Simulated scan of single mutants.
Amino acid sequence: MTSQNRSSRSSRGTVLLIALGFLVAALMVGGVLWARSHLTWIKEQRGGGAWSLTYEARSVRGEDRATAVRYRHSPGQYETKERDERLGSTTLPWSTEVVVNTGAEARVEVTPAGRGIASCRILLDGVRVVAQGASPGPGKPAVCDVITSSTPEKWPR
């Protein structure tokens, strides 16, 4: 075998390895681009779309206490059923972080003590206010509720 044949085989092997490397890289980049553009669809299929919300309650007037706080949340990101929690006498201000599935109702209700007035807020990711409310009168509950966006990662403005 001549040195020219060996060098020809070597260069063909190198070209083949380079072409194979480019093919693998192209498939990986294509897969990442496809996954990014179909992320919402993927989340909807696996049933894991949920929102991280913060419920807050405060006393506007009267005692810094609520006779009751009720709130709704999803027990887990992959569970479709909502759970209602009820707290008895609660010191205000009060807050809790919850998970609420996409397209589900997020709700908090605060009943002020005596003839007090309370307020409530629901915050998306602990920052953006998506619902707020106040007692319509002394001793009446403040209610905040909102239906979460049914599209994962896209909450309307």
Rank of each mutant, 00 (worst) to 15 (best):
S52F: 14
T151A: 03
P93D: 07
T90G: 04
H73E: 08
T67Q: 06
A68P: 04
R58K: 06
R9A: 11
T54Q: 11
L124V: 02
C144G: 05
K81A: 05
K154N: 06
L123V: 12
Y55L: 10
V127D: 15
G137W: 03
R115D: 15
S74F: 01
S150D: 15
W34G: 07
T148D: 05
T102A: 12
R115C: 10
T96S: 03
C144I: 07
M1C: 11
R65Q: 12
G126A: 11
R36C: 04
A66L: 02
P112A: 01
R46A: 11
R72I: 15
K43H: 08
G137K: 07
D125F: 14
T54K: 02
V143Q: 03
A26W: 14
V130K: 01
R61T: 15
T151Y: 01
L123M: 14
G21T: 12
L33F: 10
S95L: 05
Y71C: 14
W41C: 05
E153C: 06
V146H: 09
P138T: 12
V110K: 03
G116K: 05
L92G: 06
G103F: 00
A26V: 15
V127E: 14
G47W: 07
S150C: 05
V69K: 06
R107A: 11
E82T: 14
P152N: 00
R36N: 10
P138D: 07
G30T: 09
V29P: 04
W155L: 00
T80A: 03
R58I: 09
Q45A: 13
S119C: 04
R107G: 05
V129D: 07
R12A: 13
P112F: 02
P152C: 02
L20C: 13
V108N: 05
L23N: 12
T148K: 01
P93Q: 07
I147C: 05
E85R: 09
Y55F: 14
N101K: 11
G114W: 09
W94A: 02
K140Q: 15
M1E: 12
V110T: 09
L92H: 03
Q45N: 14
T91I: 00
A113G: 09
I147S: 10
S10W: 04
L124A: 03
S11F: 03
D84S: 08
W94F: 05
R157N: 06
K43M: 12
L27A: 14
P141H: 02
A113F: 08
Y71R: 07
L92Y: 02
I18L: 11
R115H: 13
Y78F: 11
A35H: 13
M1F: 12
V15D: 02
G21R: 13
G13Q: 14
R86Y: 06
T2W: 01
S52V: 13
P156I: 08
I122D: 04
G30M: 09
D64K: 07
P138A: 08
A113I: 01
E97H: 12
L16C: 12
V98S: 00
P93R: 06
R12F: 06
E63F: 09
W51N: 00
R128W: 00
A142W: 01
A131I: 08
G133N: 04
T102P: 00
V98K: 03
G88N: 10
S10E: 12
K81W: 00
S149Y: 05
V60L: 13
T102H: 00
V127L: 13
L20V: 08
A118Y: 03
